[in-house]
Design a protein around this nucleic acid. Sequence first.
DNA 1: AAGTGGTCTAGACCACTTT
DNA 2: AAGTGGTCTAGACCACTTT
Lengths: 234, 234
Amino acid sequence: MLKYQDVALRIKHMIYQQELPKGTQLANIEELINQYQVSRSTIIKALDRLERHGVIYQVQGSGIFVRQRKKSGYLNFMESHGFTVDLQDLPGSSTVFNVDIVKPDAQVQENLQCDADEEVYFIKRLRFVDGKVYGLEQSYYRKKLVPYLNKEIAENSIFSYIRDICNINIGFSDKYIQVTKLDAEMASYIGLPEGDPALFVEEIFYTTSGEPFDFSRVVYHCENTKFCVQGHAK
Amino acid sequence: MLKYQDVALRIKHMIYQQELPKGTQLANIEELINQYQVSRSTIIKALDRLERHGVIYQVQGSGIFVRQRKKSGYLNFMESHGFTVDLQDLPGSSTVFNVDIVKPDAQVQENLQCDADEEVYFIKRLRFVDGKVYGLEQSYYRKKLVPYLNKEIAENSIFSYIRDICNINIGFSDKYIQVTKLDAEMASYIGLPEGDPALFVEEIFYTTSGEPFDFSRVVYHCENTKFCVQGHAK
DNA sequence: AAGTGGTCTAGACCACTTT
DNA sequence: AAGTGGTCTAGACCACTTT
């Protein structure tokens, strides 16, 4: 584990375990250097990370402060699929309908940057958080990069499997977001009336080396899913 | 202007002006050090910024590459209000209905962390991008921090005014996102049928020193606004 | 083995806020 | 004037990929 990651984690845990309220000032940089026995740059890198994740904010000339935690009941929009996992994660599960090997249609080809004859896994599953439906996911994985998948894996976390078993490093993603009305089929899966509003997100996931390995479409249940994004001008 | 900001901008401009396609490899770090005559750390900080903004991706041991640009027709969700402005910005305008000084109700008090007797500006405006309605915005600004506002300012960019004239440094924000159905009033403003789906975003903006100065609610036109988020695991 | 990005350090100096 | 975070440098060494 890298030093700056370790320091960032320890500071984050300290804030959450002690339940420091928003606005609480932390020790200054000199003190943090002594506490963690690392260089100034390493402390600054750790603090930068925490700032970008909405844990703290730094004020030049003044100090380092605890930021307000997101209101409860909202999912973290940036971490909703695969990226760094939060501390207070809610329990999730899935009902899997399909795990098929198919040929990609034109749209999937374009998003996964692959040919018509390259095989891809197609998985359709209903996802639950805390016992409630939160969305219907339909995703395509390139077999070339994810050679094996089955129902059991899809019932748990596909992303942990991809990371830990396939040794794929997840690098970045492009998310495309819009709002739609549920059609009859979607409505029946989600358990809401046809025509109800829904958030529709298409996302392409890339490995750290820039290869797309997953294209997914998710329709979110409009009542059970609300999101939060803690942004930063930096 | 700071060196790393300058270097980041110059690299970004270079990529966009030369229209380098995705996957194009840039010069390596040693060469960049020579080209821009700054230290290794400054180059790395500049590249980090570009990576987080979705312009490039770096692969350890391999190189620095141009990332795919977001598909056209999608607004940048992270920069949709106040933060760094993109190059290819579309022209925006607003129709302003109210610029009133009011006392905050309970919810506004909570979000702006202020008392019931503190005065706030209440502004209601319909926003257009590229000639099309994209949302109805209702926002509250603390008079203590933004002492003066009028219709003319609200017809243009309130955030540029706040930054450049009020000398407020915009630091970070909390966004809360959900999907709803338009009620009769919203529908008439937006120009869509009642009951149509809409994205509803509440956002609290803070100064760099952590004071909330703006609480806003925006209802987005579901057909005219689609968003993109280019995320990164870092 | 050579090339490329990433981490980490010590230290000088700058920018901004608080006393 | 003192305190606090931010920038920038030169350089050693590590991790990973390509040749």
